[in-house]
Design a protein around this nucleic acid. Structure first.
Lengths: 172, 172
DNA sequence: GAAATTTAGTAGGATGTCCTAGTATCTGAC
DNA sequence: GTCAGATACTAGGACATCCTACTAAATTTC
């Protein structure tokens, strides 16, 4: 016979399944699945963002700033106008200003006047910015992206499904 | 023969597909799919949050505060301790403090002393808080949750897939 | 060509999230 | 019973996002 063991802490019920039950119980069946899907996406975002930020912390960059660095890293000249950065990352211009301010303070990028459009500002990756982008990517690949906690099949399904969503939202 | 038409604005390429290509081109095949999945989730979160906030704007509540109202609405007594709210919504305690501060300022909830634990604070839905929760839910159901822009099949797949993720993250 | 409109970027502000630290209270070990 | 450790909440701060408003420069209109 098994020895007495300490009481197992009862795991809380899945909050989203619980919300789904409530939705159905209130007669909102037609919205219940959509609610559950959107709430699940919100939570998944939170989980992954936390993982990514944890890996990036030693590099003293946030995911938002990392994305700017990678965009520049992939560009031919290592430089892009602010506006282009916002379009590609699909964030508000003022978010770009914010991120570039911090990246520039950390000497990871540099603002330069645009050669032909005096309204525009080019953001150029510095040598240390490029080095950091490479090291941070190695860390993220190893610690998060290679094993997301989802099966390879699920990973592909997520990409495919959300691709439709993004298309319908006008992303491309 | 078709008449001349105005030049169709070239749609930008899918930024995530582009990033995936770059990942593969740099030899990071094993991480490329995971990167694409996580980036897709980040973007999907952004899209849905924007839709939800747009619908909630007329009610003068954010999605974060709406979630607090609904949690209370579903509770038997219409009141829960701060700590419980944080656990169920899976956000930091200080986020709950923040949300409840604003809800209380709007007279949608009320802080009460916990009857048996003087450390704890009960948050109770007011009459107007409950009314707002019901009206906001009707709006969200009609304008977002009933039609997410994903097929019913995709909705179910997303819930199921992310359920695994949330379980492995310790959510339940 | 001059005026109107559009576009690029910044400033300031609101909100949400998290973190660390600090206070008050409860629990459990001795 | 006491005292150490755990728990509940708030305060203050760092970041990210968005919005509106503003300036400067480019583009379009007539």
């Amino acid at each position: 016979m098994a020895p007495m063991s300490a009481p197992v802490p009862r795991l809380a019920a899945d909050p989203i399944a619980e919300a789904h039950r409530q939705w159905v119980a209130h007669g909102w069946e037609s919205a219940a699945d959509g609610m559950a899907a959107i709430t699940s996406l919100m939570r998944a975002h939170q989980i992954f963002l936390a993982r990514v930020e944890t890996v990036l912390r030693p590099f003293d960059v946030s995911f938002a700033r990392y994305e700017v660095l990678m965009l520049l890293h992939f560009s031919k000249r290592g430089a892009l106008p602010m506006r282009t950065i916002g379009s590609r990352l699909q964030v508000h211009q003022t978010s770009v200003t914010n991120a570039v301010d911090r990246l520039e303070a950390a000497h990871l990028v540099q603002r330069l006047p645009h050669p032909t459009d005096r309204r525009a500002t080019l953001v150029e990756l510095t040598r240390s910015g490029r080095a950091l982008a490479e090291k941070a990517t190695a860390a993220l690949n190893a610690e998060v992206f290679t094993d997301t906690g989802l099966s390879p099949r699920a990973v592909n399904d997520v990409v495919k499904t959300l691709s439709q969503l993004r298309r319908s939202a006008g992303d491309f």
